[in-house]
Write a protein that binds this DNA or RNA. Sequence first.
DNA 1: GTGCACTAGTTGCATGTGCAACGAGTAGAT
DNA 2: ATCTACTCGTTGCACATGCAACTAGTGCAC
Lengths: 145, 145
Amino acid sequence: MGIGNDAVEIRAQGWRRLAALHGLIEAALEKELQAAHRLSVVEYTVLDALSRQDGWHMRMQQLARAAALSSSATTRLVTRLEDRGLLTRVLCADDRRGIYTELTPAGQQLLDQARPTHDRALEESLTHAEKLPELESLVAALHVT
Amino acid sequence: MGIGNDAVEIRAQGWRRLAALHGLIEAALEKELQAAHRLSVVEYTVLDALSRQDGWHMRMQQLARAAALSSSATTRLVTRLEDRGLLTRVLCADDRRGIYTELTPAGQQLLDQARPTHDRALEESLTHAEKLPELESLVAALHVT
DNA sequence: GTGCACTAGTTGCATGTGCAACGAGTAGAT
DNA sequence: ATCTACTCGTTGCACATGCAACTAGTGCAC
């Protein structure tokens, strides 16, 4: 049980804290976004990532990475959002395998409505987490640019 | 776009980084644990939480909180592990609603085998994440006690 | 050109998850 | 003793996810 094991244990503890904080925040966001806009956290993440491209397209795999999802899950997620009229698939001319997605006005509008909900829920859960001794320092690290 | 909005944006960015790091680590652990021991990350988390109690019991709801899972998911997770002989359900005498779970020798043994895999995969993914500029500071924050 | 290895995205299938409804047990009021 | 409100854990059901297999398209070798 020397110095090496201590490092291992510190890493494991850090990971447990990270997972705990992540779970806390995600649960809060999920609840609020679902209740107010019928959006899941991943769905919001995708819309947000698209809007961050500012009117520009994103390929499916970029979306997959942004949402930390498999490509199959991304396919169905995009289908879901497309069925709700929030985004559209655009075939790309240069590479006909590739598919671009872009926000529709309705998608942009829903995102505009959902963003305050998201930001408020995020702030609340961070404030809550900050009070838990084992999460305090990790929350502080998020404020750092 | 005053100071208030900056704080909001910083929080959002922090959350995206947290989610990214979490996804990175979880995917790596999932892959390694699944391949080497047919264990998912949540399953490992539960076994680990139980062993951390050092031979003592844990109620279903403690387990649910430790794994960031709903109670229904916890029920089935415990059933799965019980079917594999890794833990046992123990009815509690004082409160007959409550159910304790404890590791079996086989569960302890599998955990002992899986822990090095887990710790190594964790170290590797942290080392990898440390090289990504946007995750570097967050990874550093995990080292802090 | 033809063939081959590769990438992008989609689908069948099995599985893990959350929500809501439920049965069982507890604690307190009267 | 009984009624009520609550907690604990389990189950039916719908649904999102990952893996593997597939189709379509690209690019390189020859």
